[in-house]
Simulated assay, not measured.
Amino acid sequence: MQRVHFSAQDLARTVVKVAERPLVETLFALDLLARQGGGEDYASWRQRTTGRLGRRSWSLLTLARTLRPVPDLLHMAENAANPKTGTERQNLVAMLEDFHKVALAPYWDRVSAALEADCTARGRTVLAGGIERLLSTVHPMVRWSGGVLEIPSHRSQDVVPGGAGLLLAPSLFLYDRPVLIPAAGRNRPLVLAYPVAGGTAEAVLAAPAAEQNAADALGPLVGRTRAAIMKSLTESCTTTELGRRIGISAASASQHTSVLRSAGLITTHRRLNTARHSLTPLGAALLDGFHHRDLARAHM
């Protein structure tokens, strides 16, 4: 259990708003995907994101299963700008940027709107009952009593904000528990990230309209599974990786790639016992043509 001890000054400086460190939400998304968490609300997002991960992002996912994205990877990434830090930390930042482009960027406008809406709702709680009312209702697992905020944790820790207060920040990807994040610097507030209200994620993380239309149009031509395979081959991969990306067995992936290869839409290069698949120029043109057609329709 972590216990945050508030002074009157800390209470006065406690606010609720979207986190000032956007990297945190990326790391929560990484953790959710690494743990295959979130249940059905995140199922489509998990499948869609997994199918688009590049090689560096797969390495990042493996790292997230070894280290805690928050605070371990957060600390490493935020210190990567220091010239004394090594190449490994700088590579971590590049991997996180790649992951963000696939996992969050396509949905960021909707994610931001959902977080702002939650902040607005919490603001009404403050107006109706004050900061202490906000602290006592922020999450069912958090307890507020006698000037102390208790947060479930694997370790026992007493924390004193020292007059800097607390920043309450909603998160879409922190779906199951609140997390206390260390202050970003001296005289900066601690951050308590908490999940937004349930039932929000599925709608917010729905596939972008243009992408849905392209998949719907290409599906009848080659089949939905083969369309998903083609979309996943924007970066070449093995049969096993391909099956994992779109959620089918390696045997099934092999059958579908055989059909696509016969049609001239993908090519396969074999080396020893490994086969790597890539889109052919024809396959890439077909996929790109459906995508741009739907973008044009969206702007008509």
Score class of each variant (00 low, 15 high):
Q2M: 03
Q2C: 02
R3A: 06
H5M: 00
H5R: 07
D10N: 03
D10V: 03
E20Y: 05
R21P: 00
L23C: 03
V24H: 08
A29F: 11
L30W: 03
L30M: 12
L32M: 10
Q36Y: 09
A43L: 11
S44F: 07
S44A: 15
R46Y: 05
R48D: 11
R48M: 08
T50N: 14
R52T: 01
G54M: 12
R55A: 12
R56Q: 14
S59G: 08
L60M: 09
L61R: 09
L63R: 14
T66V: 14
R68C: 04
V70K: 00
L73R: 05
L74S: 09
N82Y: 03
R89F: 09
Q90F: 01
N91A: 13
V93H: 08
M95P: 05
M95A: 15
H100P: 00
K101R: 15
P106F: 09
Y107L: 11
D109N: 12
V111D: 12
L115T: 04
E116G: 02
R122P: 00
A128D: 10
L134Q: 03
L135I: 02
S136V: 05
P140Q: 05
S145V: 01
G146K: 12
V148R: 06
L149R: 01
E150P: 10
R155K: 10
Q157S: 02
Q157I: 06
G162A: 10
L168Y: 06
L168F: 01
A169S: 15
A169I: 11
L172E: 12
L174K: 04
D176M: 00
P178G: 06
P182F: 01
G185D: 12
R188T: 07
L190M: 04
V191P: 02
Y194Q: 00
P195F: 05
A201T: 05
A201C: 06
A201L: 06
A210W: 11
N213L: 14
A215M: 15
L218I: 14
V222K: 12
T225A: 13
A227W: 06
L233R: 10
T234N: 08
E235P: 03
T239G: 09
T240W: 07
T240G: 00
R244H: 07
R245F: 03
R245N: 06
I246G: 04
A250D: 15
A253V: 12
S254W: 06
T257H: 02
L265W: 13
L265M: 13
I266S: 06
R271W: 09
A275G: 07
G283S: 02
A285R: 14
L286S: 04
L286Q: 10
D288K: 11
H292S: 12
R297S: 09
M300Y: 01
